[in-house]
């Protein structure tokens, strides 16, 4: 479970995140939906302790990442928005490296990699050097290495960005399975379709704040819209409807 309480962050004059509060519980997919630059990535980066919030508090299964960054990261599996791999290493070696950094034993890494290869369907390229991988293959390896330690909490920043239909479906299927296993999944996206397809709760992020929250259904009822996109536009423009 991830708890975010009144968290803010400014970069110089710019207030990127303002007093944001929300909870992403276990057994659920929570989505941060917002336009580019709305503050999604900054919020996520504060959760995984890459940047320190100026106010507020974050708890990951009760652990504050500001005070115990290493301990918090053990509870988290993160796919950041930059997902470069080591090109001279094979996909398996990329995953092993992160597993070792998590302090896992060789046997554990081997078993976990086998199950990730199965779930993400990476059999064909798992022992190839990652140089020249397709976007879809790269994201799969990046997800696998982020989740090699089988964390309870999973954060994904724009996971299906730039993926084709088949790869997107593969990632969605994987997330669905992880949810069934009781994981807390928090992801950010600007793609309405995707958010509507996979999330149990939607948080609409606009201008550094959470403008609205609810299920797809409740957000549409709230704004009297017939689809999520119209609801989203209605919320971020304060009911004016157009940009």
């Amino acid at each position: 479970m991830i708890e975010v309480k009144a968290v803010s962050k400014s970069f110089g004059e710019v207030k990127a995140v303002k007093e944001v509060t929300f909870t992403a519980p276990d057994h659920q997919v929570t989505a941060l939906l917002g336009a580019n630059g709305a503050g999604k990535t900054t919020t996520l980066r504060m959760i995984y302790a890459l940047i320190t919030p100026q106010t507020g508090e974050i708890l990951i299964d009760g652990v504050n990442p500001k005070e115990h960054p290493e301990k918090a990261r053990k509870l988290l599996g993160v796919l950041p928005d930059t997902r470069g791999l080591y090109k001279r290493l094979t996909a398996r070696e990329n995953i092993e490296y992160f597993g070792k950094l998590h302090g896992m034993s060789d046997i554990d890494i081997k078993n976990r990699t086998a199950s990730l290869v199965e779930d993400l369907r990476m059999q064909e390229f798992i022992d190839r050097k990652t140089d020249g991988f397709s976007q879809g293959q790269r994201v799969k390896v990046a997800i696998a290495r982020a989740l090699v330690h089988d964390p309870q909490n999973i954060i994904l920043d724009e996971p299906t960005n730039g993926l084709d239909v088949m790869s997107t479906r593969g990632v969605r299927r994987f997330l669905e399975k992880e949810k069934q296993r009781g994981k807390c999944i928090l992801f950010s996206s600007h793609v309405m379709q995707e958010v509507a397809a996979v999330s149990d709760e939607i948080l609409i992020v606009s201008d550094g704040t959470i403008a609205a929250r609810g299920t797809e259904q409740s957000l549409m009822e709230l704004t009297k819209a017939t689809n999520l996109e119209d609801a989203f536009v209605h919320i971020v423009t304060n009911g004016e409807g157009h940009e």
């Binding site: 890459l50 960054p69 053990k74 988290l76 993160v78 930059t82």
Partner: peptide, 10 residues
């Protein structure tokens, strides 16, 4: 672009 992912390890 592998730095951010690397820094996320404990």
């Amino acid at each position: 672009n592998s730095l951010e992912a690397l820094l996320l390890n404990p």
